[in-house]
Every structure is written in C-alpha cells, then in structure tokens.
Amino acid sequence: MDKTINVTLKVWRQAGPKAKGHFETYKLDNISTDASFLEMMDILNEKLINERKEPVAFDHDCREGICGMCSLYINGHPHGPDSEITTCQLHMRKFKDGETITIEPWRSAGFPVIKDLMVDRSAYDKIMQAGGFISVTTGGVPDGNAIPIPKDKADEAMDAAACIGCGACAAACKNGSAMLFVSAKVSQLALLPQGRVEAKRRVKAMLSKMDELGFGNCTNTGACAAECPKAISITHIARLNREFIKAKLSD
C-alpha cells in the first residue's frame, strides 16, 4: 500500500551569486513515502513549471550515492536527517505528515551560491589539482601485487578513498573548514607505498590550496565526520596534521 504525506517546504531561493536570497514556502500534497527526496524536488519543479514559475535549481547526477553531486542542507543536516547517505538516497518516509522541511544550500565562504540551492564546489577540484594524484611515467604494466601492502593499511586507504567530495564536511563545519575532505584525499595516498614518494609535496600543496581558497581552520568539533555520507573518520585529520607537521619539520 502506498502511503502518502503532505509536506510544507521552506526553500532557499537566490537568483544569482550576488543576489540577496530569501526563503520561499511551498505546499506539496500526496507525496508518496516511497519517493526519494530528489523525486519530491522534481515533483515540486513540475508543479512550479506548470504554474509558469521558475523551478528550483539544485545539483544532482547519479542518484545512487556515488558521484557526490547532490547537496542540500535539510532541516539542519547536510544530506538530510538520515546518517551515512547522500541526499539522493534519502526517502520521504523519513519525514512526518504535515512536517515543514527547510532546505538550504551549503553555506561556506569556500562554496559560493550559484543559484537557489546550487553551490560552486570547484574549490574541491582545485585542491585535488594541487596534489591529490600520483605522478606516473608510462612504460610496461607492473606485475600485480609486486608491491606488498599490509591489509590494515590497504583497508584504511580504502576507507579514506570512499570520500566522494560532496562538500558536506565543510557545509557542516562551524568553521567552514575542508579538513575532512583534504585529510581523506591525503590519507588515501599517504598510506600506500605508491603515494609515499610525493607525500611531503602533496600534503603541503593541498593544504596551502585549501587555506588559500578561504576555508576555515579545523577546531576538532567532529561535526564533519558526524554528517559525512561516507562516514570518513576524523582520524584522517590527525594523519593530515602529522604528515604536514613532519613535512614542514623536515624542510
């Protein structure tokens, strides 16, 4: 049996990066609890288009929780009230009939609003371009397992690599800090022998790019890890601190 609920949406509307934003209230009736949150947003936009109004701009792509494109700050939580999922994996069954749902964009100096709920997250791409890679020279394909890697290191690196770069960490952080993202990207390479070669240069380049782009300083509140859809641990931040301090002391 299909259960339906009626909800009131308070949605942040902002015409452009420089425009002044405001909340707009919409009522949606008979939303199936089986609908995903983004399907509900699609229904809202259908309704707005039929009423000859401007639809709400929001980011989305794969809708299966792996691309990191969807965002939305829903009722005080990045990616909504459920834990360890992205907005596209959130369903309307998590909301009550008659509930008012407040939807805001990521708010951080590093992520300026483009329009409505859409923010510019290219800052994360710039941080990756600063050093989030391994330089390889072309040549013959090395044999598999030629470089032994301990299981615990491989697991830890894999946990860090789960980061999809959605920006929920900086959105949740009271300091607008991107440390959890940078720490995950530094950790996934720093833990592996292939990444160790450029470890010092990488950590310095990525961290100074993060600082340069206007992200804040980490004060270890842990809000980032609590809201991360991929449950990245703040122990990666400790590793980032360690790597950075070691790199600076050896200069």
């Binding site: 939580h77 407040t102 100096a109 609003v113 949740a172 206007g214």
Partner: peptide, 30 residues
C-alpha cells in the same frame, strides 16, 4: 582562528541548525 573561521563560514547563516551526535558543546564554544 575565531575571526578567520567566522569569515570562512560565509555571509549567510543557516536558518536551521542542529547539534550532531558526538559533537560536544565545549568544542563549539572554546
């Protein structure tokens, strides 16, 4: 740090804020 972090938060503040599980009150009010 406090001034820099306030600036990094951006111009607009969240209308709805919640306390995340495991985030101590002290850590937000140091």
């Amino acid at each position: 740090l406090t001034v820099q972090n306030l600036r990094a938060r951006g111009r607009d503040r969240y209308a709805v804020t919640t306390r995340q599980e495991g985030v101590s009150w002290a850590s937000k009010n140091m």
